[in-house]
Simulated scan of single mutants.
Amino acid sequence: MTAKQPRILICSCEGSMPLDAGAVAKGCGAAVGTADQLCRAQLDRFRAALAEGAPLTVGCTQEQPVFQEAAEDAGATAPLRFANLRETAGWADAARDAGPKMAALLAGAAVEMPPIAMTTAASQGVALILGRDATAIEAGRRLADHLDVTVLLRDPQDVAPPRVTLFPVLKGRVASATGRLGAFSLTIDGYALPDPSSRGGLRFGPARDGATSTCDLILDLTGDAGLFP
């Protein structure tokens, strides 16, 4: 079966913008119809184009709900797409020369987009905050009522120990990070636990490399280059 030639309908929006149907037809390779008030007084032109059963692109997005309702009432099944010609071309200072641009906008709107890949992300609210000083600990305090927080400090200097241990404050640097939102995995070098007897400033015990950590969220306050370029 031979595919039906696509149809295009463009409207001057009550004479407020010029139309170059010839340029649009040449640029899109489609049959082009025009109107001055397609969404109201000339809606029958839209219904007639629908009845042909060919793919139809309408050069108006403001009144898209009106056209979609009419298409549903008519039981139309052919592809129906819309392009904003008025704000992007028809009301421009160079509107009289905008025929080719309108053709490009209409042609782009008629291209069927490929399916968008979807990924389901499940989060348990486990957050790792990376930092160098008390700023990261303060961020942890603000988030602790909502998330399961751990703070990892890189080369901390003169950081006062928290009066109450509401969440772990550890020492280390991220050697590598992989994953995505809801499923991050990190390797930590220089990993060390704080000394409970820290006084005046946080002290940490023996460090080791190659520790691993998993989390759902990462808040990086180190000021370094991002973990994921």
Rank of each mutant, 00 (worst) to 15 (best):
Leu80Pro: 07
Arg47Leu: 14
Gly172Met: 03
Gln37Glu: 14
Asp133Thr: 00
Val159Ile: 06
Asp148Cys: 00
Ala122Ile: 11
Pro229Val: 07
Pro162Gly: 11
Ala192Met: 08
Ala54Gly: 10
Gly15His: 09
Leu152Lys: 02
Ile116Phe: 00
Gln5Gly: 01
Ala70Leu: 01
Val58Asn: 08
Ala30Glu: 06
Ile129Phe: 04
His146Asn: 08
Ala139Lys: 02
Ser12Tyr: 08
Leu38Ile: 13
Ala144Gln: 12
Pro161Met: 07
Leu128Trp: 06
Ala175Met: 07
Asp20Pro: 04
Phe67Trp: 10
Ser213Glu: 11
Ala78Cys: 06
Lys4Cys: 06
Ala74Glu: 10
Glu52Pro: 03
Ala54Glu: 09
Pro229Thr: 08
Leu152Glu: 06
Glu52Cys: 03
Ile137Pro: 00
Arg208Asn: 01
Gly22Tyr: 03
Arg154Met: 12
Ser213Ile: 13
Thr119Lys: 10
Ala122Asn: 01
Glu69Trp: 00
Ile8Gln: 07
Ile218Lys: 01
Gly29Cys: 12
Asp44Trp: 06
Cys11Ser: 13
Ala41Gln: 15
Arg47Cys: 13
Ser12Thr: 15
Ala103Tyr: 04
Trp91Gln: 00
Ala70Pro: 02
Gly53Cys: 12
Leu147Trp: 05
Ala71Ser: 05
Pro18Lys: 00
Arg81Tyr: 01
Ala134Gln: 10
Leu130Gly: 07
Asp36Gln: 14
Arg203Asp: 07
Leu105Val: 01
Ala134Gly: 07
Leu143Val: 08
Cys13Glu: 12
Pro114Lys: 00
Ala122His: 08
Glu138Asp: 13
Glu112Asp: 07
Leu130Pro: 03
Leu128Ala: 14
Leu153Met: 03
Trp91Asp: 01
Thr34Val: 14
Gly210Arg: 08
Gly210Asp: 10
Phe67Tyr: 15
Arg86Asp: 00
Gln42Lys: 04
Ala134Val: 08
